[in-house]
Each structure stands twice: as C-alpha cells, then as structure tokens.
Amino acid sequence: MTDLEDLRQSIIEGDMKSTTSLVESALADGLEPGTILNDGMIAAMTEVGRRFEEGEYFVPEMLIAARAMQAGLKILKPKLVDSGTKPLGTVAIGTVKGDLHDIGKSLVAMMLEGAGFEIMDLGVDVPPEKFVEAIRGGAQVIAMSALLTTTMPNMRATVEAVKQAGLRDQSVIVIGGAPVTQAYANEIGADAYAPDASAAVRVTRSLIS
C-alpha cells in the first residue's frame, strides 16, 4: 500500500521520478484521487511554502518541488475530473503589460496549482483587456506581477479595466513583484499584495474561502 508520507517527501525533495511513480502506485492501490491530491500533494506544497517562509528553502527548492508536483498532477488530473473533484478556484495570472520578467509569475502559478487552484497562465506582457477576458472566461482571481517601476502603472490600468467592465465584484485581484508594496495595492484598489509565492498562496486561499 502506497504511503502518502513517501509521496509528500518526494515532492518536498523535488524528486519528479519518484513522485510520478508514487502517484501511479497510489492510484493502482485504489486511493481516492482527492485524497492523493489533498493529503499528499497539497500537504507537501504547504510544507514547501512553510520552509520557504522560514528561510530554509529558496526559489530553486520551490521550483523543483513544484515541478515534481506538476509531474504527479499530470497523471492525477484526469482521475480528479472523473471523480468530480473541483479545484479551489480559477486564477488568471500574468505579468502586466510591458513587463517580461516571468520567473516570479511562473513560480506563483506553480505554487497555486500545487495548492489546488486551476491556473490560466496568461504569460507575460499581458494587456488589461486580456485579464478582463479571463474573468469573463471563469477566472475568480486575477494575479498580476511587475518587476519594474515603469510597468507598475499597468496594474492600476488593469484594476480600472476590470471595474469599467463591471466585473470588479466578481473577481479578487492579487498583486506582487519586487517594487510592489501593500501601500501600492491599497492605492490602486487591489484586494491583496503578496510579497512572495508562498504568501500568494496564503492570501489567495484566504480571499477565495
């Protein structure tokens, strides 16, 4: 019988090969896909986030853990659909118009996926109207990133575009990136600011619930 503790450890250590084989064996053993996701994979990524916040893990450890988790999720996803397991919510994520720096954005996307969210990755250099379209397409959360002070104003432009489209009440807006602050989030009317990928998961989870 597959021990979910082994699965958790393999994700925490970023062992992609072992993660995929443990997910396969857990399914073969008849474990519920939702149990594998929640008690194995999401629990592991929660621990990864904790280690990051404690300064024990850095971006590389998070990246390889998230990569292992994604490899496992690829096998698990069809079974989750079959079993009717729903994601926590759908997050449309991208760097704002003019900003091409995507390592932070990609890491946040992977961590959110690891926490049980469905991800619509809009990529880099995303204009406000694409975020608006994403809400119309079912995203409940807009997550925006900017690394440059010169592109930060496009966060405000996106918040305004969402308001003008009459969709502000249907969406939660989270922002982050090196020059971004809580004060800036307050100023432009975003719902939350996340200083790093782990915090992004925490605040998104709290806003969605």
Partner: peptide, 9 residues
C-alpha cells in the same frame, strides 16, 4: 541573488 537562487547553488 537570493531572490533567484539558493546559497547552495
């Protein structure tokens, strides 16, 4: 920087 890589790397 430590916002991209780890001390180990």
């Amino acid at each position: 920087s430590s916002t991209v890589i780890s001390p180990k790397i």
